[in-house]
């Protein structure tokens, strides 16, 4: 099932436009613009999926001590913050660095949540370098089957 989350068309530009539109639609369903704080990209990379019952946020943050990750929700903004210490500061003098692509330092990413979520039921798990945050939708927002009498 995760494949559908990861397998996107390779035509990135048109796809990116489409996703932006979808994101606008998802977060802006009530006529509210997407949060200005939620636009930036950076570390960790984030994927978001939705189910009728929850919003699932996957933050790709490898090599982090899970106890030092901070996840918080404030006024509809989900914040993921933490720090990945630089390893190069520990290395000895007689070294040559050929590649230094991995992120180091402190990070913070903010995801704007839709209005129908229940922040008290948020669960977060860290596994294989991915932080998965499940934000349940509030009871009232979940689809219900209406019985016809």
């Amino acid at each position: 099932m995760y494949e559908s989350l990861l397998r996107f068309p390779t035509d990135l530009f048109s796809e990116f436009d489409r996703m932006q539109q979808e994101m606008e639609r998802m977060f802006g369903a009530l006529g509210m613009p997407t949060s200005i704080r939620a636009v930036a990209r950076g570390f960790p990379a984030v994927n978001i999926g939705t189910t009728p019952k929850s919003i699932e946020v996957y933050a790709f943050a490898p090599g982090i001590d899970a106890s030092r990750l901070e996840v918080s929700v404030d006024r509809g903004l989900l914040t993921i913050a933490g720090e990945r210490p630089s390893e190069s500061s520990e290395v000895a003098e007689k070294v040559s660095v050929y590649a230094d692509e991995r992120f180091s330092g402190s990070f913070k990413r903010v995801v704007s949540l839709p209005e129908d979520v229940d922040p008290s039921g948020i669960q977060a798990r860290y596994r294989d370098g991915v932080l998965r945050i499940s934000v349940p939708r509030s009871e009232a927002a979940q689809p219900k089957r209406i019985e016809i009498k």
């Binding site: 099932m1 995760y2 989350l5 990861l6 996703m19 189910t51 596994r127």
Partner: peptide, 20 residues
């Protein structure tokens, strides 16, 4: 290969990691 735990019926709505 990326293997994420996903709940049943999840639809992707935004993705920065777009390859498995």
């Amino acid at each position: 290969e990326i293997a994420l735990e996903t709940p049943e019926g999840m639809e992707p709505s935004y993705a920065e990691i777009r390859s498995p």
